[in-house]
Each structure stands twice: as structure tokens, then as C-alpha cells.
Nucleic acid binder design. Structure first.
Lengths: 180, 180
DNA sequence: CTTACCATGTAAGGCGTTACATGATTCA
DNA sequence: TGAATCATGTAACGCCTTACATGGTAAG
């Protein structure tokens, strides 16, 4: 029953699309899922072994590769577990932006410091946006795959919000520069 | 020097504006800071005592009130600590949206489930937005206070992104309804 | 008088990161 | 042959939430 661990669900979600190694799962986290989810090796590998123990995934060695790869596959139970979780209401959407936190207390350190943080934020977003735009162009051209439709929706969420962030940065900078 | 704990910094930030009790700090978290930061009593109260132990804040009983209030005040050292932290580069801006996670794996459960999650998200945002708009109108009328300028910037961030979320919801719903 | 809210805390436990440890392979 | 990347894991530790525990006060 209860309290599905998110790390299990993300992994099962990824495995529901394709067989993967722990390393590849981490890569997906660092690229495709990056702007709305993340996890470290320290949680991924133990979770994978745990999923196998609970019969939600199976593990096998890759014989084709020269490397010591361990390939994980979702089981029927795993798919059921995932489907159940997907059907439950969302528990938590959380945004935790240190940038906003520091900006909120900006009066303590003055406009220049605030500007520095905003500009750093702007650069970070500007650096990420191209990846999202690239992902969108790829996904838009391959909507035959049923999964791509959903990827595209999340990518578009990212693009829209990032563009809004950049607009806000411009306004915020202007406002601070005006000194009012 | 040292890995500033975020909880200490938020608290000191709030105390830098005004004296507060732990209970009031929690309230600020649940209202003003809500959409970009949060914390529970279980971390606030221990942190407050810790700040006092380290000389970053002082504690006194409220004599005026009939309640057993403990009022915390930031010290000069506390202010220094806060200023230093504010001047350090941002370490982490994190967004963790279960909604996007479930949507990403949406193909597993189909369009109807995806729609349900998007609509729930939409309702949640629609419910929050008025508070932000209200905060903005109040802040816009009292920019004489130096701190308000910074509050306003963060509130505007929230408003802009929430409005973008709502736009995205409309598009996403339409796209899913079209079944393509 | 009872409900809601004010007010402060502790303990257990969960969850996850960081840092460490190890080694193979690919590519320049 | 050396650097980058592939590849898997563990251990320590930190941080936080949840649930528990307690009691006062204001308002209807």
C-alpha cells in the first residue's frame, strides 16, 4: 500500500519506457527530467536493488557490452505499482529558489547584490533554455511515439516558464536600476 | 567557513526586518514565503534555540502578552552572518513538481488521468494567485518601506510564473483533448 | 463551553546528498 | 598514456518532516 517513495516511482517510470542501467537512469535525470526532478547515484542504486527485491523490476548483466552493465527491466508488478501511483492525486509541487529567498531579504545588502543574483539567475536560465528548445524540436518531429506527446508537454512547460523568468529578470533589473 | 544552513538564514532574514516569535516565523513561511520556501515547526524551533546559542539572535519572554511568547531578536553578529550569506552566490534553485513527473509518464495511464492532474494543478494555482495579487496591491501602495521593493519583486515573480502556468494548463488541456 | 487558534517544543524516522572507493573502456 | 567518461556501489551524515505532547487564550 502506502507512501510510495518518489525515487521508486521515477525509476519505474523510466523503466516503463525502456530497459536501463543505473547509470543511464542518472543520465535521464540530469537531462530530460532535470528541470523538474533530480536524484543522485546514492539514492538510485540502492533503490534499484530494492525494486528488484520487491519484485517490481528485474536485473540482468549485459552480455553484449564489454562493460559491467546491469540492465534493469520493469516487471508486471512494477507496472501495476507505477500505474497505481500515477492515478493517485499529486501530493506536492515544490519550488525552492534560493535566488528568490536572497532577493526577498535584498534590502539588507542593497541593490547591487540583488542585481548580481538576478543576473546570475538570468545567465543560468539562458544557458538551460537552448536544451529545452532543442528537445522540443526533436519531440515535435516524432509524435508518432505515444510517450513523446507527454514529454513534449513537460518540455513546453519548461520553455514557457523559463521565458517568463527571463522577462521577469529584465523587469526586475530595470526596476532596481531605476532605484525605485 | 561554513555551510550556512538555509533554515538559519531564512530565520535571520525574517528577524532582520522585525522581532518575531517562532510561531510568527512559521506564519511568514506559510504566507509570504510560501511559493518559494517552506519549513516546519520541527526545524524552526530547534534552529531558533541554536541561533541563540551561537549568539546570532537573542530570546526574551513577552511580558505584554498573556501568552507564553518567546520573542527573538537578531544580534549584530546575526546581521553579519546574514549579510555574508546574502553576498555568497546562489547554490541551488530547485523545482520539484510531482505534477510534471506524473505527466511525463502519462502515456502509461492515458489522457484522462493526465487531464485530471493538469486540472488539479490548475485549480491549485488559481486558488493561490489571488493571494499574490492581493499582496502585490498592498506592496505597491507602500514602497516607502525599503524592504517592500524586494518583496514586490518576488511577488511579481510568483504572479508572472503562475499566470504562465495557467496559460500552459489551457494549452495542455486543449492538446490532450485533441487527442494529438 | 467548546472550538479554533495561539504557542512551544521533542523524538523518531525517512529520505537523500556528499564523499569515498573501485575499476574498466574509449578516445585523442 | 592520460583524461574523460562509463559504471556500480557504500557509509556517514545532515537535514527535515511527521507525529506526538502540552497547555493557554479568544471568541462565539
Amino acid at each position: 500500500m502506502a507512501n510510495e517513495k518518489k525515487i521508486d516511482c521515477v525509476i519505474l517510470g523510466l523503466l516503463s519506457h525502456e530497459e536501463l542501467t543505473g547509470y543511464e537512469i542518472k543520465k535521464r535525470m540530469d537531462t530530460t527530467l532535470k528541470y523538474f526532478w533530480s536524484a543522485s547515484y546514492g539514492s538510485i542504486y540502492p533503490a534499484l536493488n530494492d525494486l528488484v527485491d520487491r519484485g517490481l523490476a528485474t536485473k540482468r548483466e549485459d552480455t553484449k557490452s564489454k562493460r559491467n552493465k546491469l540492465i534493469y527491466t520493469i516487471t508486471e508488478n512494477g507496472r501495476g505499482y507505477l500505474k497505481r501511483w500515477l492515478s493517485l492525486p499529486i501530493e506536492k509541487d515544490e519550488l525552492r529558489y534560493e535566488t528568490l529567498l536572497k532577493l526577498f531579504f535584498g534590502s539588507e545588502n542593497g541593490e547591487e547584490q540583488a542585481l548580481i543574483h538576478i543576473e546570475a539567475f538570468e545567465r543560468k536560465i539562458e544557458a538551460e533554455l537552448p536544451y529545452l528548445l532543442h528537445a522540443k524540436s526533436i519531440l515535435s518531429n516524432s509524435l508518432n511515439d505515444n510517450t513523446h506527446k507527454y514529454y513534449l508537454l513537460t518540455v513546453e512547460f519548461g520553455i514557457k516558464t523559463y521565458q517568463t523568468y527571463l522577462e521577469w529578470c529584465e523587469e526586475a533589473k530595470k526596476r532596481l536600476a531605476e532605484g525605485q
